[in-house]
Write a protein that binds this DNA or RNA. Structure first.
Lengths: 149, 149
DNA sequence: GAACTTTCGTAGCATTCGCAACGAATAACT
DNA sequence: AGTTATTCGTTGCGAATGCTACGAAAGTTC
């Protein structure tokens, strides 16, 4: 007679980290498809552009790194691509020549003035679709994103 | 005089898809680090193993594909790695020789009997940390994951 | 049962990713 | 000032990723 050593019952589909990852991926993929097909930009490019549009021009790679949750090298490569596509200009900061100063070009601004309202509309659509659950969602996200206090 | 064409106000940090992506990545990275340092497995490997532990042996690549939100080729490569590390065995299904039958080896079962209680504990820790917000979170995730009804 | 279609899993190949190391510029130290 | 440390951004290179096409096996049609 042997011991089958039964495994503990565990349902991956009820595991919050898994559910969160799948939900985030689904939403992100939806948006990424939209961004790419309609504007030809990636999610990383979108984040960088959105930051510049909101915080104003002149941000450095390092500024953006922490703010939009991209690694330094991702920001660097993303900025390079955006420069090549004419949406962002890169200049070295005069007072600290290590820093790169990133700015939206006129073309970049035109793109964002078209994109931002759509993002806003998408946000409202999400809130409508989730209904009252959105409150709890945002509260939970706050706790996950700000583990302090 | 020129027109500055002010951009619409839009704060990325309040954009739910962004918040969701960052929160999921943070939680997933935390877990991935844990899995890797303590058990030497990746998230994809964890998902596959968890599915086999829960649903029982004999699942095919295709079975797992939809269930654990991995692409077919990811399942294939993950299963290959797991076989190489001796946690999973692959045999061709007798009645349909296209199918690969995946099973936990005794070593795989021993690993999971150690891992699953930890995952369960992590789940409970999350619920405790999020407090009442967890209700809304799960409700929102349900809506995102099951867009029907 | 032969020809075609579909399903299953794998692998080739180009792209992307992530780590680590590097050069340039500035700051800190003595 | 001269030396050492630190910060900033970029890039080289190996690993991982994702698309695609492929062969093998079963299903379908005639």
């Amino acid at each position: 007679m042997y011991q089958p050593s039964p495994l503990p019952a565990f349902d991956l589909e009820r595991f919050t980290p898994y559910r969160l990852a799948v939900a985030a991926k689904r939403m992100s993929d939806d948006l990424a498809r939209e961004y790419r097909s309609r504007f030809g930009i990636t999610v990383a490019e979108w984040r960088l552009l959105a930051h510049l549009a909101h915080e104003g021009d002149g941000a450095s790679v390092r500024d953006i790194e922490a703010r939009v949750t991209l690694e330094k090298y991702e920001v660097s490569r993303t900025a390079k691509r955006l420069e090549e596509s004419g949406l962002v200009s890169k200049t070295t900061n005069a007072s600290d020549r290590r820093l790169v100063s990133l700015s939206l070009t006129p073309k970049g601004k035109r793109l964002m003035s078209e994109l931002l309202p759509l993002a806003q509309a998408y946000q409202e659509e999400i809130e409508a679709r989730l209904g009252p659950a959105v409150k709890g969602l945002e509260a939970a996200l706050d706790r996950i994103l700000n583990p302090d206090e």
